[in-house]
Every structure is written in structure tokens, then in C-alpha cells.
Design a protein around this nucleic acid. Structure first.
Length: 172
DNA sequence: CCCTGATTCGC
DNA sequence: GCGAATCAGG
């Protein structure tokens, strides 16, 4: 893929809209977040965050001459299927009693990042989005912290304080 | 570990 | 110009 005028416009729009580089990359498709960031800089759109210091030149290290990064591929048994089974069990035990019927779609997940039940594992967010009986139903799929079934965003929604979920209806 | 953007530099 | 590799902060 190349940076056509349309894609550049979309990039500028999404970046201005506040989406992260990885989100924009997923939305555009065919590019990585590095590509997005690089393009953003070349367009002069940077300056949104302050994670890097304005001064103090970074350490420039010689890049690899010419060699694949890491051809190391370790596959120890087929544990993938087991993870899927665990994911399903967790869905029945945790997600279903939650609030599947509630239309919770406040967080937009790009199509490329959406997860079906087969793609969930122990650290993907298992927050259901949409109606489980419909075709467009999917799971959040973003990364969740270890031991937590949801991503940071949906953890906040799932584990709301009791005071916020049910306020005193009759106070006098 | 995950994420984020910033920067360098081979292509 | 492009973007992977890398760096640096959270």
C-alpha cells in the first residue's frame, strides 16, 4: 500500500481525531503503526504527546547490517486449542451473566482488531459487543492485563463501583 | 509484559 | 519518501 491522497486525508483526520497510531494503522490497513507515525512526522502533524523530551539527543545505534531479526520459532505442543477451550469456559462463567443484552458499544473497535470467540485467549478482552445472536457480534479483543478478562477500558465498565451502578432510588 | 509516540537511517 | 528498528516514557 502507498500513501494515496485519500489515505493521507484519512490519516490526518483520524490523527486529529485523537486515535492512536496503531488504531489508525489498523483502520487504514496495509500499514504498521510505525508507518503511520513516520508519515505523521513527515506531514508535520506530530506534537500530540509529550512522552519524549524536547532536548537530549537520543542514542543512535548502528542498525543491523542485513539479517532477519529473529528466526526463532518455538512451538511446544498444541496448547492453542486448550486456550480456546478455556476462553469459552470463561465466557460462560463470566461474560454471560454480565450484561450481554445491554448495547454497550461506546468503544469503537476497528474491524481488524475485532475478535471472534476462536481468537480469544487468556489475555484478550472478552467484552462482548453487539448481540450474540447476530452476525456482527464480536468481542473487544484488545489486550487485557494478565488475570483480568477485560481490557482496561472494559474493566472499568465491568467493575463499576456499587455506588455508581445502583444509586438510592428513594432517599426520603 | 503491554502500550504510546519519537527518532534514526537503510532502502 | 517510506517504514522497520530502536529508543524512551507510561
Amino acid at each position: 500500500m502507498s500513501w494515496t491522497d485519500e489515505r493521507v486525508e484519512l490519516l490526518k483526520k483520524l490523527w486529529t481525531d485523537g486515535l492512536s497510531a496503531s488504531q489508525i494503522a489498523a483502520e487504514l490497513g496495509g500499514v504498521t503503526r510505525n508507518a503511520v507515525i513516520g508519515k505523521v512526522h513527515r506531514l508535520g502533524l506530530s506534537g500530540r504527546t509529550k512522552t519524549s523530551r524536547p532536548s537530549a539527543p537520543r542514542v543512535r545505534k548502528a542498525r543491523r547490517p542485513s539479517m532477519p531479526p529473529r528466526p526463532t520459532t518455538r512451538v511446544i505442543g498444541n496448547t492453542a486449542l486448550k486456550l480456546n477451550v478455556v476462553a469459552e469456559q470463561q465466557l460462560e462463567a463470566e461474560v454471560v451473566p454480565m450484561r450481554v443484552l445491554a448495547p454497550v458499544e461506546e468503544l469503537f473497535i476497528p474491524p481488524e482488531e475485532r475478535a471472534t470467540i476462536l481468537q480469544l485467549n487468556e489475555h484478550t478482552c472478552k467484552w462482548p459487543i453487539g448481540d450474540p445472536g447476530q452476525e456482527d457480534f464480536y468481542f473487544c479483543g484488545r489486550r487485557s492485563m494478565s488475570g483480568v478478562p477485560y481490557c482496561e477500558h472494559h474493566s472499568r465498565v465491568a467493575y463499576q463501583p456499587a455506588t455508581d451502578r445502583r444509586r438510592p432510588k428513594s432517599a426520603g
